[in-house]
Design a binder for these strands. Structure first.
Lengths: 111, 111
DNA sequence: ATTATTTATCGTATCTTTGCGATGAATTTT
DNA sequence: AAAATTCATCGCAAAGATACGATAAATAAT
């Protein structure tokens, strides 16, 4: 036990990763990225799961800060939360790119 | 229900994201990336959790294909699985970069 | 031979996730 | 006013994740 806790960056990255750790939520994010119109109902039609389950996944993405919803009754317009998304993008970039994705380097198990 | 299933790429990306969805596992990957020597015991000293729990996290990373272990009794040498890691890197790049991280574009909720 | 070291696995407890149908809230349409 | 639309939430069940200590397995050291 070298450290009592994980760093904030590590916690945040893990949180984003966890939010993306389900195919339904990946699909939702991809869908939201492709349109300017993004109502909840449209998302449901893209997914092989019940409406209530979609709503839960949307809630998780919202709780993770990756999307936001704007009520336009009776519909709800969802979209990517740019600020947090860009931060997630940056954290993943740091993680993969700078730290691990140096393709020129040899891995520790490669001789 | 437009489609019965998710695409393989989507499933794979979600699987990688899920594996990274815990601060202990993020810490492990960062640690492995920084050294050429990477024995199991060293990893445990970096984490604020019990040995058996670390072993479980290592197993999950291994199951997801992100790392691999080589027995050098009595120790076990762990390292990043380059092939799969690079693929994960690419999938995340596509997801963030091409699809969502176009910072010049306006989001659908930004006026 | 016995003991120590290192790691995986087992058993267990608790919490979280994933999923569904049913219901409720807030409108809009008829 | 009544019915339909849209979405969130509740209640529930099943499965998975997270954590721990104890134990096993496989060697190395004494």
């Amino acid at each position: 036990m070298a450290q009592k806790d994980y760093s904030i960056k590590t916690e945040t990255l893990a949180r984003f990763a966890k939010a993306l750790g389900h195919p339904a939520r990946i699909t939702i994010m991809k869908y939201l990225a492709q349109r300017t119109e993004c109502y909840c109902g449209d998302i449901q039609e893209e997914l092989p799961i019940a409406q209530s389950t979609v709503s839960q996944h949307l809630k998780e993405l919202k709780d993770a800060g990756l999307i936001q919803g704007e009520i336009q009754t009776p519909k709800v317009r969802y979209c990517i939360n740019r600020e947090n998304w860009d931060y997630a993008c940056q954290l993943f970039d740091d993680f993969f790119g700078t730290q691990l994705c140096n393709k020129g380097d040899k891995g520790c198990c490669e001789s």
